[in-house]
Design a protein around this nucleic acid. Structure first.
Lengths: 125, 125
DNA sequence: TCCTGTAGTTCGTAACTTATGAACTATAGA
DNA sequence: TCTATAGTTCATAAGTTACGAACTACAGGA
């Protein structure tokens, strides 16, 4: 098993951060880690009623880690993950916070929309 | 030729914005449009010493447009583009500004690095 | 030491996305 | 109409992502 890759702070790129957080599953994982540091990979096998296969989850964690957004450490059989938000915020002030806030705005809007018409799932046309 | 697609403000997603701006060419185009509204597609055939084929450019403009980041209008033979930053900022306050600022921080750092060792082009290892 | 269970990774491949040259449409002006 | 300019679309090659199956890694027994 190859060792975990954590880029040093100066190797983290804006492109990498945006790409990593442009995926809704990864954004949800990151948001959760921001409030519950130390969560493991398998804490996310279900994300908002959706089952995520563990191989897929593992890839998502790798993407977040290699973008520099999270730090993963092995404790016995499991991996504890935490965000690197302080470091990143020092280098790119306000970036990650603005992204997470925007995701929250959108989540709140979607919740409202679901309340208004519960049984419909809309498709872009 | 199919008509230009501009999503309405409520159909713009955070994922879409992040994905669109996670590409360095598109981020550069957007940054330039933010200061010089009305620029055309072929104003960008060269981006920081790199030649971009016009079919590729056309796709990048489409990506920005369909993510809701820019508005394109035909004037005679050319397309004038402008950002939709005010609308977006109303819905996702601070998001686009934070991203552009982060891109600027990174560009400034890269300029510094180039000055220090001019002939080297580094590769991630 | 071996067995079993749990946590996560890697591999192979199918599905999707992106980049680009060639051929096209659209418009302006002579 | 002819020519030039601006941009789009198409076909396809190259790259990326998702996920099941098979794997590694570790802990706690027996």
């Amino acid at each position: 098993m190859r060792p975990l890759v954590h880029p040093s702070i100066e190797d983290i790129t804006v492109e990498g951060i945006l790409h990593a957080l442009s995926d809704p599953v990864r954004a949800a994982i990151y948001a959760e880690l921001a409030v519950s540091s130390g969560a493991t990979c398998s804490n996310f096998l279900k994300i908002s009623d959706r089952d995520i296969p563990k191989s897929t989850l593992s890839q998502h964690f790798r993407a977040l880690r290699e973008a520099g957004l999270i730090r993963s450490e092995r404790y016995g059989v499991e991996m504890r993950n935490s965000t690197r938000c302080e470091e990143i915020n020092r280098r790119f002030p306000g970036l990650v916070m603005a992204i997470m806030q925007a995701h929250q705005v959108q989540a709140a809007e979607r919740l409202q929309a679901t309340k208004r018409k519960p049984a419909t799932r809309k498709k872009a046309g």
